[in-house]
């Protein structure tokens, strides 16, 4: 029993070269991730209005005041609703399209490798480039979408898609969906490729339709990798800042404001790092929940 306990210990003397080798990475993680995290949590509980650094109240304990301030802020409330809507819309759309594409690309098609490569292109395009390209496509004056829609008679006059409180959210979401699909698809495709062809052949011999094969064979087998990919994707969706900020800056009238853009606005426009940190902590809780689910899934799989 004692031996077992010893084995589980750090065994510093014996393993010091290993610990030495990982030390730089550990230090980097501690300074670049752990410290900012705790600093952020700390800031959310203090008065930290950057433009009032000489006030006696600056950097003093604020209790839950920053949280009260943001929860009573109409823009924050709207950003929470938008974050949930943003997450659900992106997740569902990406999952469905990625699944369909993966199923199609799992078939023996002519030029399959080319299609697989092409489908990965959106993933490789930087967020800033994607945002700028789509902004141009949506442009009310020179955007191809408006030009085509007007020429085809679908619109009588050009619409400012990104300037519309009704459409801006969906237009930006479309860009995020377009960029997010390849990531999800790669995971699904990899899982699909692990299913032996013989399983489908046996099912076919037993008279199973394609739909039944999908529900009874494919989905149960890829369930775990699919869930893991979805959770990872979810973290990316919730933390999507660049696309939104570059296309609409959270506007018009906060119709595309999510928690991330709200926190940025509080920090860099209103200069209130206390409330910005409080909003970031709320965002962190969202992320932590998804990460916890992900880690549990990985552990269960192991």
């Amino acid at each position: 029993m004692q031996k077992k306990v010893k084995k589980r210990g750090l065994e510093l003397r014996k393993n010091w070269p290993g610990y030495l080798l990982i030390a730089p990475a550990v230090l980097a993680i501690l300074s670049l991730s752990i410290y900012p995290l705790f600093r952020g949590i700390y800031l959310s509980f203090v008065n930290y209005n950057l433009v009032r650094p000489n006030e006696a109240i600056f950097n003093t304990f604020a209790g839950l005041q920053n949280y009260v301030k943001i929860f009573t802020n109409a823009v924050f409330q709207q950003s929470v609703v938008n974050t949930v809507k943003w997450t659900v819309v992106n997740l569902v759309a990406q999952l469905i399209v990625a699944m369909l594409l993966a199923l199609a690309l799992n078939k023996k098609l002519k030029g399959r490798s080319l299609y697989r490569t092409l489908i990965l292109v959106p993933w490789a395009v930087p967020h800033a480039i994607a945002a700028m390209t789509f902004t141009f496509l949506y442009n009310a004056n020179v955007g191809i979408i408006n030009i085509l829609a007007v020429k085809l008679g679908m619109l009588t006059e050009s619409i400012s898609w990104l300037g519309s409180i009704d459409y801006a959210f969906w237009c930006v979401a479309l860009v995020a969906i377009w960029k997010g699909i390849p990531f999800q698809m790669i995971f699904i495709l990899a899982a699909l490729q692990g299913i032996p062809e013989s399983v489908y052949e046996s099912a076919e011999m037993d008279g199973a339709s394609r739909w039944q094969s999908f529900w009874r064979i494919t989905l149960p087998i890829i369930k775990e990798p699919l869930a893991i990919a979805t959770i990872l994707n979810l973290i990316g969706i919730v933390s999507c800042f660049n696309t939104i900020w570059l296309m609409t800056e959270g506007g018009p009238l906060y119709s595309t404001e999510i928690l991330y853009t709200f926190a940025y606005r509080e920090a860099f426009i209103n200069h209130n790092f206390g409330t910005a940190a409080a909003a970031s902590v709320i965002l962190f809780l969202f992320m932590a929940l998804f990460s916890w689910i992900y880690l549990r899934m990985v552990r269960e799989k192991e």
Partner: peptide, 21 residues
């Protein structure tokens, strides 16, 4: 004009005027 709603950068302002909107 309609473009004002998306004129969050100056280039959109120039475009609108230069293109006759």
């Amino acid at each position: 004009v309609e473009s004002f709603k998306e004129a969050t950068t100056w280039d959109k302002v120039y475009e609108s005027f230069a293109n006759g909107e």
